[in-house]
Nucleic acid binder design. Sequence first.
DNA 1: AAATTCTCCTGAAGGC
DNA 2: TGCCTTCAGGAGAATT
Length: 269
Amino acid sequence: MPELPEVETTRRGIAPHIDRQTVSGAVVRQAMLRWPVPDLATLLTGHTVRGVERRAKYLLLRFDHGSLIIHLGMSGNLRVLAAGSPPRTHDHVDLVFGNRCLRLHDPRRFGAVLWADGDPLKHPRLRDLGPEPLSDAFDGGLLHRAARGRKIAVKSLLMDGRIVVGVGNIYATEALFHAGIHPARASQRVSHARFDRLADEVKKVLAHAIERGGTTLRDFVNESGEPGYFAQELFVYGRAGQPCKVCGSAIRTRQVGQRASAFCPRCQH
DNA sequence: AAATTCTCCTGAAGGC
DNA sequence: TGCCTTCAGGAGAATT
């Protein structure tokens, strides 16, 4: 499931192939993803990509007349293929650049392709987002302020995009383990010092995962169809019943905010 | 206002 | 072997 490191891996992978390239055509095979997909052939043919950026888990393809906003949902990936490559099931959208093709594949269709006429950062889906986790704007103080008076589980706080973006289930789970904080702990009962540590661990785990090309659990692949290599470095996510890599206790899971959450009962409080 | 629940979808896994 | 049920999961929407 693409989280920030997987989206950033995708951005870095596709940018060299499509930045400053001109769209020669587009195909929309499935016009209904999370929201309706615009008529991309009409919208983009003849227009040139003026930048490939990322905000939270959204990819932004800049054009002179607006921006294409792409979200990979939980099962999406973008690959660069030869133009004319036969589509497989769930290959929903192609953007064609001469002899190459940027193809969106998304079995569960939780992804989205949106268009913003003006500043994409002012789009309703992006305008209320919190700071980037790898920026200086994100730190323990921000978490501590957001947690004031909140009974919500600290893991849910960390995954709330209005507070900080890009931290999904995998990396929230891992960062909480490294910070020694129980995922279900009430936010208001986490000290400033422990939030400092948590923010630091979020940055470390995300940066490290980007270096490894992201986490591949089932189906994440980069623009060339290759998996990421962070999965082997996970300490708790997906390791229920297995021994903690630090203390040997059996990793447990429980529901936190309707989401499966793994933790070490001895290392996290 | 904050917290919780529901929703979209498919593939994988488990039961029988 | 194969059909049926269950469930995960990002994040917006609806509800409490």
